[in-house]
Amino acid sequence: MYAFEFDRPATVAEAVAALAAEDAQALAGGQTLIPTLKQRLASPSRLVSLSGIADMKGVSTKDGVLTIGGGTSHARVAAEAEAYPALAAMAGRIGDPAVRNRGTIGGSLANNDPAADYPAAALASGATIVTDRREIAADDYFQGLFTTALEEGELITAVRFPVPQAANYQKFEQPASRFALTGVFVAQTADGVRVAVTGASEDGVFRWKDAEAALSEDFSEGAVKDLTIAPDSMIADLHGSKQYRAHLVKTMTVRAVRAAS
């Protein structure tokens, strides 16, 4: 790993100021960034650790909306997000216990790994990404592989999840990495059903609109069991072909609907 300066500010304002330095990089839980630095795939001049910012940690619920601080660990979400059981269960299956104690929701959403779990939860829930300077709807936030609406130096301070009437996340795990080979998050609200898929597409997390339309009419396994999704834009690698992932998208959707209803 190349050398860098290290800052550990105590407030969001100090962190944003420190990130204005040239080639500065925010450090959340580090569970992706530190391995990346070791491989010299990134070489920031300055790392700005967010772990000392108490205001960015915590889980609270008010008026049917669950708010999670951007620096909150997966373990804490798993333990404290009782108001949204499907989200707590998803957080409790990320990586392994030691990874969950360090990794954070803000870090996961800022990185937007195409096989990460949180992007599916945020997109299916219609979450709002709150940053140091604005609020971004999940539909506008995810912009492809490792790409988001965040500007240089912009920090996720919190994420707001409207709690759905029913929801479930089904992950078909890659057993070595514990990332999603394909994961599907289904959320039913008064406005309809949203279905978000991670791990499957070359364009990152996406909404499966055909399934959403069918499930908004009839929230049952039967509504989706005859649907198909085109394999063209799916990921193909040694773990699974495009066709296999397309099949998994439907299978995980059926399982999620079964578990949620």
Partner: peptide, 29 residues
């Protein structure tokens, strides 16, 4: 492994298990 997969480096920081190869010493201050 030094890549946060094997867990041989697990220690407790403020009472919770972490992989010490994937945490900077500066953050344990």
């Amino acid at each position: 492994c030094d890549t946060s997969q094997c867990g041989a480096c697990v220690v407790h920081v403020d009472g919770v298990a972490v992989k010490s190869c994937t945490m900077f010493a500066a953050e344990a201050d």
